[in-house]
């Protein structure tokens, strides 16, 4: 029982990371109509931007988060304006190839700038809190913060999407592109805001992953498959679904270590995704297929 609770906590931490990535993937898919394959490497780049910021300033790891989010939002908009905007007018699937190329460009840039070794935000061991009430359950303060901050960010995205004009415009474009365009929604501005949110949340995912484990140039790429699985599970183009999807995938992946080799964790995400594609491709929350 204790083990299961412990693993549940790890699952929720992973789930928070995946949700942060999946919301961005889901929004980009909804508004720009393509699967953004560079999203994993956005996460990685965000994590490294945070690392440099706290390294230069000599701050605690948590300061990496805002720096990474702001930095990555800017990078995402720059990439869109320099590259994706030029090919947006052709088929969306060309953007898919381009983003796949962008994934490799970003990763090699990260290797060139920061090297290929593992890096960490803070050295030393963090002592977990022991909860004797729950039979000696151990909880790391970092893990609590990761889950709480993700919930806060999700609430922020929710308020933005439901309470602001821009948020409404984004939902409208995701629901029915043509109708949104003829009713005078400024498409270019909506797209830029999409990249700002997507980039910032990807950076948050990267920083969380870096705090929980370590920084490595392929950390984001290896997380991309579960992120896509979470987005599909929740229903693509549905940010709220992405959170549910992220949590389900994250918890399932960690729980699976009770039964099968940990090497096959990504296979669990893949299996859930394939089941979903067979039986309910529109996702739990009926996304825009």
């Amino acid at each position: 029982m204790n083990d299961i609770l412990q693993i549940l906590i790890y699952g929720m931490v992973l789930g928070s990371v995946l949700s942060m990535g999946a919301i961005g993937v889901s929004m980009i898919f909804g508004i720009l109509r393509f699967a953004h394959f560079a999203h994993g490497d956005f996460m990685t780049l965000g994590a490294y931007i945070g690392l440099t910021f706290i390294g230069v300033m000599g701050l605690s790891p948590w300061f990496a988060l805002p720096a990474a989010m702001v930095g990555m939002a800017v990078v995402a908009v720059v990439i869109d304006q320099l590259l994706y905007r030029r090919i947006r007018r052709t088929q969306p699937v060309i953007l898919l190839i381009s983003s796949f190329g962008m994934a490799l460009i970003l990763r090699s840039l990260i290797q060139l700038i920061w090297g290929s070794e593992n890096q960490t935000y803070a050295s030393g061991i963090q002592f977990p809190w022991r909860l004797d009430v729950l039979g000696g359950l151990r909880i790391k303060p970092d893990h609590v913060w990761i889950v709480l901050i993700s919930l806060g960010l999700v609430a922020g995205v929710h308020l933005f999407l439901t309470r602001t004009r821009m948020g409404k415009a984004m939902r409208a474009m995701s629901d029915n592109m043509d109708l949104a365009l003829v009713s005078g929604i400024p498409a270019e501005r909506v797209i830029i805001v999409t990249w700002i949110i997507g980039g910032a949340l990807a950076a948050a995912a990267g920083v969380f992953l870096g705090i929980d484990t370590r920084l490595h140039p392929v950390m984001g790429w290896t997380t991309l498959l579960p992120v896509f699985a979470a987005a599909i599970l929740g229903g693509i183009g549905r940010p709220y679904g992405a959170i549910v999807g992220g949590m389900i995938i994250g918890i399932s992946m960690e729980m699976s270590t009770l039964f099968i080799s940990a090497a096959y964790k990504p296979a669990v995400a893949f299996a859930i995704m394939v089941m979903m594609l067979i039986f309910r491709p529109q996702g739990i929350f009926k996304g825009t297929l």
């Binding site: 394959f37 699937v93 498959l225 599909i232 594609l277 491709p281």
Partner: peptide, 15 residues
Amino acid sequence: LRTDYLAIATIGIAE
């Protein structure tokens, strides 16, 4: 499904 799903599925199968 749309070809984006195929792309995601192939990356999964390769992994």
